[in-house]
Design a protein around this nucleic acid. Structure first.
Length: 108
DNA sequence: CGGCTGGCGTCGT
DNA sequence: TACGACGCCAGCC
């Protein structure tokens, strides 16, 4: 399984109302320094849309390690909107602590 | 703070 | 085959 496949798998497991950083995803996928690549892959993602009322690949839930949102193919505006609608609170352009996804909690 | 630099994996010339 | 573009990050002025 290639790096990109692991990335897609991980991102698809981010629960609604939570976010993960590019850096974390890269690390979990096995290449800690490849945060940038994660972004590149999101842009090329194969399933960026709804399926069974859920995002198959919720690329909008992946943000910068600083807590800021970062870029988005559909526009940073839309990214913020989607997150807000999922219940993620953003203050001063940053996601508040508490909305960050921790992999071990994803099993809950 | 801000700008620059090097590294990362994949894909398309 | 080789190169460069990317939804980034940390480290250094």
């Amino acid at each position: 399984m290639s790096f990109k496949e692991r990335v897609y798998k991980i991102v698809s497991q981010i629960p609604t109302g939570k976010v993960a950083t590019y850096q974390l995803v890269a690390k979990l996928a096995g290449s800690p320094g490849a945060a940038r690549v994660v972004g590149t892959l999101m842009k090329k993602n194969p399933n960026p849309v709804f399926k069974n009322l859920e995002f198959v690949l919720p690329c909008h839930r992946v943000i910068l390690s600083s807590g800021r949102l970062g870029e988005y193919s559909g526009g940073a505006k839309l990214k913020q909107k989607l997150l807000a609608e999922e219940g993620v609170k953003i203050k001063d352009g940053k996601v508040e602590k508490g909305y960050f996804w921790k992999k071990n909690l994803s099993l809950a």
